[in-house]
Design a protein around this nucleic acid. Structure first.
Lengths: 156, 156
DNA sequence: CTCAGAATCAGCCTAAAGTATGAGGGAAAA
DNA sequence: TTTTCCCTCATACTTTAGGCTGATTCTGAG
């Protein structure tokens, strides 16, 4: 019942307004009936009144148009930009697991000798790996490889 | 003149509508005048008609209600270029302008020879600078210097 | 099973990087 | 003015990096 009331509020309002105005008209009629020539004025009055009512109804009850504007807000990643490996670029290079490992240690500033010691293999092995890394990454120096790998998000 | 027309378009339209409707009323009057009791029906008709006109006017000529809703969409940017030199750490190292310049080029993967060419100086000069850089940064390899400098925010 | 790729190692050679020492010129501070 | 950096260049030497060739072992895909 409540729902029905709110749902048809505008209709009820309009009906009541109409009824009241008709009543007023009836009363006015008694006053202006004597003046026959005032009929057009009377009709015009009604017209203006109800025009105003219509405008009021339209403005009051029309649902406002919602305009959604999507604003792109640039968000920079916080200080330590959580590093996630760019798998696509990593695959493109064709680096093997061991080669990537060597590349990472290179980036930390270790010499081939130190890398060899850390991975418990010979210097020759690391030289082979590092050569492969340079070849696969299409560079000529380890510093270039490091720079490129960082730019491609292959290493942190 | 043209401007005046467009500016008062709504007023003119309303006036014309009113005039036409009053004329119609006048005509209707001749038909319904015989029926005295039909006066309320007649008034109600006018009321409904002009209500409709009012609604139409309001909807057609009023600036539509627009509720602008701003939705912020977060766009994440990889590797923000917002780099600011850590002046404190830079001073601690005691690096001179030229030495810092060489360090930056080192980090881009350039060889001493290439750096020399780029700065229009001899290889010897760059070797001297690079040695000074390694000494002042307390490292033994350029890769270490690069890694350390990046971690200290001395270079991007 | 065979073949390809990955990982391991070695030797040899060149290129680049790094160390040490010295030295001249310029600019700014003491 | 003298001192102190900074930038420049050179020569000689050692170490590290990188290129090239070739070899062995192992594993997974075809």
């Amino acid at each position: 019942m409540r729902k029905w009331l709110t749902k048809h509020k505008s209709t009820i309002l309009y009906t009541i307004s109409l009824a009241i105005l008709l009543f007023v008209l009836r009363w006015l009629e008694l006053r202006f009936l004597v003046i026959n020539n005032a009929f057009e004025i009377y009709a015009g009055g009604i017209a203006i009144l109800f025009t105003a009512l219509g405008i009021w109804l339209a403005l009051k009850l029309s649902t406002p148009k919602v305009n959604t504007v999507v604003v792109e807000k640039e968000v920079f990643l916080p200080r330590p930009p959580e590093f996630t490996v760019n798998e696509k670029e990593l695959e493109k290079t064709g680096l093997s697991g061991r080669e990537l490992e060597v590349l990472q240690l290179m980036a930390e500033g270790l010499s081939n000798q130190e890398i060899a010691a850390k991975l418990y293999v010979s210097l020759s092995t690391i030289k082979t790996h590092s050569s492969k890394v340079l070849e696969k990454m299409d560079v000529r120096r380890r510093t270039q490889a490091i720079d490129k790998a960082k730019k491609l998000n292959i290493i942190p």
